Simulated assay, not measured.
Amino acid sequence: MALVRAAVVVLDCAEPEKLAAFYKELLGAEEIVATANRVEIKGVDGMRMAFRRDMNVTPPSWPRPEDSFQAHIDFHVDDLDEVELRVIGLGGRALDTRDAAGPYEERGYSDPAGHSFTLRRTPSTAPKQG
């Protein structure tokens, strides 16, 4: 029997309701818990995120070195351009959208509260059709 059954990525922010709405739309998620200081969502693939109120939070400054990465999230996507448009439309901000060399293409963004995340396109492992 596992001692740990689930994990939740928790981001501190001044306005958890607004940040939860951003990720809820981005991930096609549903809200599962909301209190005065915390909102938790669950994505269609089971990924869970929570947003905790902290009025003194300082967002990371990546790519500037001052407060660089505190943590970041990788999201796997099929179409970088399509998801980028959605991120920007929801209030996110591009940080590093140069295509990385190698087998994985990735681009860096921040959510409306300044937390950084990466959209990563991974090569398909399915056999080619036709």
Rank of each mutant, 00 (worst) to 15 (best):
P65G: 06
D74W: 11
D96G: 15
N56G: 03
K42V: 02
R107N: 14
D78T: 14
K42L: 06
D96T: 09
L27G: 03
R48I: 06
L26M: 14
E40A: 09
G102K: 09
A34R: 14
S110R: 13
T122V: 14
T125K: 04
E105Q: 15
G46A: 10
P59K: 01
L95Y: 09
V57G: 01
E106T: 12
L85G: 15
L19D: 02
K24G: 07
D78G: 13
D96I: 07
G91Y: 09
V4W: 11
D99Y: 11
V4E: 05
V77Q: 15
C13W: 01
V4A: 12
P59L: 03
M49N: 03
E105G: 10
V4R: 03
G108Q: 13
P123M: 07
A6G: 08
V39R: 01
K128Q: 14
R98H: 15
D45T: 13
R53V: 01
R38P: 00
D67M: 05
R64I: 02
M1C: 09
V8H: 04
L26K: 13
T118Q: 06
E30T: 07
H76A: 14
A101W: 08
I41A: 02
C13R: 00
A36P: 00
L85N: 14
G46Q: 13
V44N: 14
